[in-house]
Write a protein that binds this DNA or RNA. Sequence first.
DNA 1: AACCAGGACGTGA
DNA 2: TCACGTCATGGT
Length: 239
Amino acid sequence: MNRHKKICTVYDILRKAYGPQGWWPILFTRNSGEKSSHFNGYHPGDYDYPKNGLQQLEICLGAVLTQNTNWKNVLLALGSLASSGLLSLERLLEAKNDQIALAIKSAGYYNQKAGYIKNLVLFLDDFPFDKLKRYSKDATRQKLLEIKGIGPETADSILLYSLKKNSFVVDAYTTRILSCLGIISPKLNYGSIQELFESSLKNDLIVFQEYHALLVQHGKEYYSRKPYGKNDRLLLKDN
DNA sequence: AACCAGGACGTGA
DNA sequence: TCACGTCATGGT
């Protein structure tokens, strides 16, 4: 089996085992308590997100805050931003970096990330979400990568989940799982891994969104502690 | 008490 | 290019 086919097979197995994931989790909905299927910010099977600019912004902020950081700590930071009245483009634009840093303390690297968030909202002030709609995926990605603090994974997360532009997200779990499966070398660079996924899968937003979410779900379960993949009987068949 | 978490940047080979 | 140090809190 060639590796393109393996990529597709892995998706089928994960999708069947875990079901729809409902990424990106949205904490702050304007109509809270709206859906019974919407829990802890997740909305499995409902791909009509984000529903407004606030949710788009929340995804962008979460993408920066979660850099090398546990998602639970990100939730605390997002909640803190909200209770500080900073969860809006306007307030973040006028806030000082120190204020932002204080509010996002729980997410770690708070001084760096405060600066990154400031850079991002300055960009969004020039290129609001409705304006970015008119740009291609590649053009938007290039612009995002020019922002200091927005690397490839953060850019792709923003593209895929906030802007709904189809760019595959590669994270540490993705590399780990694929190398344990023998599909790639563990030191293959980001772009090559992304290219492998994008050339193997059909160019479908839902598939890209779900696949990354499924890899994270599976990665948390079996690939967070060494030896990686131990007890993974789902993908690592003993053969 | 180490180790880990949905990375990115600056530096020096 | 690429390997390595730095940034930092909170859970296990």
